[in-house]
Design a protein around this nucleic acid. Structure first.
Lengths: 372, 372
DNA sequence: CCCGTCGGTTGGAACGATCCAGCCATGTTC
DNA sequence: GAACATGGCTGGATCGTTCCAACCGACGGG
């Protein structure tokens, strides 16, 4: 399926170095996989000893351990998950709900985050289970997975609309970590990890101011978006730190390309900004449209910075400068918090706030030495 | 939904035995979730009868069924996955390996597919378990999940480099469905679903020819990419169907924006095409760059069509016409095939080939009535 | 009247792991 | 030297479900 040319070749020619249990005529395993009891018999020990060899090797005498490990290798034994899950009341699965993909948006944050989370989880011995639900019911799906003990914990991502999930999960003592701050409820005691959007926009704005711009406009989301207002505050702070006025320079719209396009057109007409900082790459793309329509060159005539460092920002021309969230790091922190949370919910946890970085590309232009 | 909060009250005829999952002062359930035995006791039947009520309701007498269902509802019972998995030797989980995200590429295919697969799976009673592995070892991860019986089946996606996974999984009799044809091995008996890339490119090319273009160039991937060659053949076929020459009009490069940019520059200089069909949106973006540099207007002066209908294609200006894979449909077919495959591997399966569609945007321009 | 059939229901066993109490040699202590 | 602690290992019980053989009352036919 993948749109990827066959650049690399499979390195090893014969990928069949896997030790299997009872080798058969064709070298192909059949029948049921080996169990703990099989290993125990082969090694001449009890089941529990095999279990210990797997889970707490330090309990065994070195020679016994070696004998058991040999038997495990011979048979290609791996513990049966279902049995282990049943006994330990844990699934080693993390539930992640993915919302409907946003077509027509440049947003690729989720994709990158999911991948990072999968990687980070693996190192902690977890796998990621995906489920979906429509945006109208933020709770759908969680309940069933929880009651059927299908997952050990959740990672909650869509906290942008205030997060009823957080409170709901907290009420049921379900272990979870949120990617996103508990905007509504400062007293919420659950674990969370977030990226400092204000700092990101401050970074972007300062970058533009350093280049000599003085009239930097903001295009963001509606006022009821906490994330949007947070990001906006970064722009506002950077401007006021240098005693620059922001009046008439801000616009709040929907997160679509056309909104960004019309908002930037209006701003250019009414406030004559020389640069734009946007709450998303989607909006920034709208700005680029406007500039193109007016024959203005992004980067040279008017600078633009987006937010999310989407794939689009990377491939569009001119390259779109953008604030990049450290999603790999977020995932690591989320998993770290998860390990704290599992088993003992309801303990208070500190949130983790990470700083984004700025990817500078041509849309924020070459260095200007002189202002105006 | 079954998201029933703890509003249930202990029904009027004061039950002497307190159900373990009784609602508490705060309305918050605590302790361990109710089990089959709890439901059985409350309904005054045996465990097996409750099990039947859940799995084969038609075996019960209507009045018994009603009584059991009432008890289930009262207690908010949901079967424990681990126990069920252990007994039935099935996890109701589908393993999907996601490769490292490709930065600097417009590709968002995987994202869309994952989402579609999650939706399609849910309707079939499955969940999707993600795992990862680096591209160097295409087999990593599969083995462990298989031996630990963590998943029932796999969906294999990265078949672009020939798929050693397919053969390997086939050898172990592991149930799986491939998204992507078995290019190497026409005799492969496993189930697969794929999108007809050739048809897509033929569609794109015919669309351009209909608009009056006669010199339509191709930018694709290296010759050892089976997918690339397949897509190319669609362009080739469309051209030859109308007795148009293709000599000097094709270029094969890596899947990067810069490759697309330089390839299109060379083609414009040497073969003067008036339109481009590309094997990916990434390459098409490169073409747009070249046009921009030369002051040519995409759509008006030179037409461009990409492949994948990425988010970038949707938000860039001018909108990039692109071949769109019916991933939702692919996911549905994959799950359908999966249901066939699970339980009885090694039976031969027919492949399913789906047709992509063409999303026409401004980059393939307004209708031209006259050729030339 | 008895036997066979059959729909509906039951209790015990099993799935494959871990928990837990206990066992058995060794040492250690007074 | 008896009493006790200790490291290393064992066997039975258990997690919560489904499979399986059997049971039971009712019904119909010979």
């Amino acid at each position: 399926m993948e749109s990827e040319p066959a650049r690399r070749r499979p390195s090893s020619p014969a990928p069949s170095q896997v030790p299997r249990h009872v080798s058969e005529p064709g070298g192909v395993p059949s029948g049921s996989p080996p169990t703990l009891a099989d290993v125990a018999e082969r090694a001449g020990v009890s089941r529990q000893t095999v279990s210990n060899a797997v889970n707490s090797p330090d309990l065994l005498r070195p020679d016994t351990l070696a004998r058991v490990q040999q038997a495990i290798a011979d048979l290609g034994y791996l513990p049966n998950r279902a049995a282990r899950n049943l006994r330990t009341r844990a699934s080693h699965l993390i539930g992640l709900r993915i919302a409907a993909a946003q077509e027509g948006t440049a947003n690729a944050t989720m994709d990158r985050f999911v991948h990072s989370l999968v990687d980070a989880s693996r190192e902690a011995g977890y796998h990621v289970l995906l489920f979906s639900g429509d945006a109208s019911d933020p709770l759908a799906g969680y309940d069933d997975l929880l009651r059927s003990t299908a997952v050990d914990a959740f990672v909650v991502t869509d906290t942008y609309l205030g997060n009823p999930q957080a409170r709901w999960l907290d009420d049921r003592r379900a272990p979870f970590v949120a990617f996103g701050r508990p905007w509504d409820d400062g007293a919420a005691g659950h674990a969370w990890v977030d990226v400092d959007g204000a700092a990101g926009c401050e970074l972007a704005t300062a970058h533009l101011l350093d280049k000599g711009h003085t009239r930097v406009a903001w295009i963001g989301w509606h006022k009821d978006s906490r994330i949007g207002e947070d990001r906006r505050s970064g722009w506002h702070r950077a401007m006021h730190d240098r005693d620059l006025s922001t009046t008439g320079l801000a616009s709040r719209v929907e997160d679509t390309v056309t909104s960004g396009r019309s908002a930037s057109a209006v701003l250019l007409d009414e406030a004559a900004p020389t640069a734009f900082v946007c709450a998303s790459d989607t909006l920034a793309m709208g700005v680029l449209h406007t500039l193109g329509e007016r024959g203005l060159r992004a980067g040279d005539d008017v600078a633009v910075v987006g937010f999310d460092d989407s794939l689009t920002a990377q491939v569009v021309r001119p390259g779109l400068s953008s604030v990049r969230q450290p999603l790999e790091q977020v995932a690591v922190e989320v998993v770290r918090a998860l390990e704290q949370v599992v088993g003992r919910p309801r303990t208070r946890h500190r949130g983790v706030l990470l700083s984004p970085t700025l990817e500078v590309r041509d849309s924020s232009g070459p260095v200007r030495d002189t202002a105006q």
